[in-house]
């Protein structure tokens, strides 16, 4: 993990960020982001969660220079958000991406590589590489207008990665993607983290966020509600979970007696279950190639 001299180990720093939109003829002020302060450490997967309209996408757009903040400061690796230097360090997959439908997948990724100033001698190799990573190598010569929603999301990830950015910002990357594709996305993100990248992911799929993210920030009405590591955010102080095998009613009664002696009690008893997502992956993953996701 390399650190810039000026970013103190943080990929993103947001201080007192405010964003107001003017809506309607009378220009009524709508506050989308309200005094938000956040710091995203380098080399982690960071989740931004919150209900619709909580300011997640607006915050991401401000980080990328697509929208200007009303007040506050944002920086990416020590560079002011929206500056050419900051944008060169980041890759972005917007929500529900829509691409030039008359271009093939390869042409599209090639275009974004050129725009990002990837050295001409490396473009072909990089394009092939990212298309293989996202599982679109076989469909690369097809026009994007013929792609399914899942394939468009994969293509979106490919264009976000083609210039090998230090920070990858993903807005709802798995919305509308089936569980196999979603799991593939998760694997790719984990690999990126292993390669020292920082990933900011914004999603409503909380199960996946819990599995992938090192830290999360929850926003509501533009304000930060809670922030921290997944363990710190989700742990319930004073409670423990035991999963045991072969526990009959007699043993349960004995356990309860022991617990009572220690001033504790069993809150509930149930059988652990597999998640539906895990079951889906077990039953379908082997029979479904990535291109048909």
């Amino acid at each position: 993990m390399t650190m810039s001299a000026t970013n103190n180990g943080f990929a993103v720093e947001i201080k007192n960020l405010v964003k107001d939109f003017r809506v309607g003829i009378r220009g009524v002020k709508l506050r989308a982001v309200d005094n938000l302060t956040l710091r995203v450490p380098e080399n982690c997967i960071y989740g931004l969660i919150g209900p619709n309209g909580s300011g997640k996408s607006t915050t991401l757009k401000i980080l990328l220079g697509l929208t200007t903040p009303t007040s506050g400061e944002c920086s990416l690796y020590g560079h002011a958000a929206g500056s050419m230097a900051a944008r060169a360090l980041s890759g972005y997959l917007p929500e529900a991406p829509y691409f030039y439908r008359h271009l093939s997948g390869r042409e599209l990724v090639h275009f974004y590589a050129r725009i990002s100033l990837v050295p001409p001698s490396e473009i072909e190799e990089r394009v092939d590489n990212v298309l293989a990573i996202v599982g679109l190598a076989a469909a690369a010569s097809r026009r994007t207008g013929t792609y399914s929603k899942g394939m468009l999301q994969r293509l979106g990830l490919a264009q976000a990665l083609v210039h090998d950015p230090k920070l990858v910002i993903l807005d709802e990357p798995t919305a509308g993607v089936d569980p196999v594709g979603s799991a593939d996305f998760g694997k790719i993100l984990m690999e990126m983290k292993q390669r020292g990248k920082t990933v900011i992911i914004c999603s409503h799929l909380l199960g996946q966020m819990e599995e992938l993210c090192d830290r999360v920030a929850m926003l509501d009405k533009g304000r930060l509600v809670i922030e921290g590591t997944i363990d710190a955010v989700l742990s319930r102080p004073g409670r423990r979970t035991l999963t045991v095998e072969g526990l009959d009613d007699e043993a349960i009664a004995a356990v309860e007696a022991v617990l009572a002696r220690h001033g504790a009690r069993i809150e509930s008893i149930g059988s652990p279950r597999e998640s539906l997502e895990k079951l889906f992956l077990e039953k379908t993953a082997a029979s479904q190639p990535p291109e048909q996701a």
């Binding site: 220079g65 972005y92 917007p94 529900a96 725009i115 990002s116």
Partner: peptide, 14 residues
Amino acid sequence: ENRTALPLLARPVR
């Protein structure tokens, strides 16, 4: 309108 400008202008493009 189709938001294809988003990934383009999020890059170092003036």
